[in-house]
Amino acid sequence: MALQEKYKQLTDAASTAGITNLSVREQDGILYVDGTAADGNTKDQLWNIYNQIDPNFASGDLVLNVNVAIDAIVTHAKVITESSNLNIRKGPGTDQPIVGKAAHGEVITLVNMSNDLWWLVRTNDGEEGYCYAQYLEPQS
């Protein structure tokens, strides 16, 4: 209960922001907050609150797993790496060979998003393969 109190500001903000399927559970001294945010900004906002409550995430008493909702009609995503190109791989995993690259800021076609972590994409040059989903921002 103490943990729910500690992170109350965060869970309240999640409710206010309209996080869907919001689930807050405490188990073995760790608080698990899951849900789906409407967009990346909402997700980042929650992470900023988390960072304020627990500076630099040093306590290890919260697992905040808020995904960004993917609209079924979304067909394109922007590459949001810090600055580098994004590797396109033959299969889902960094152990898979690189078959192409997508430039930082480039908008590419989404082919399949059934895997949460790796999305199947196609570049404008026709290269097809898997990219790490965290570096892709669906375009509405």
Partner: peptide, 26 residues
């Protein structure tokens, strides 16, 4: 780097770990 920490934590939290024990020097 402090600026990269949130991104790293976001990536790791999506993997359904039991806990993330952050002993990084920021």
């Amino acid at each position: 780097q402090k600026a990269s920490l949130i991104t790293l934590m976001q990536h790791l939290s999506a993997l359904k770990p039991k806990k993330i024990d952050n002993k990084l020097t920021i």
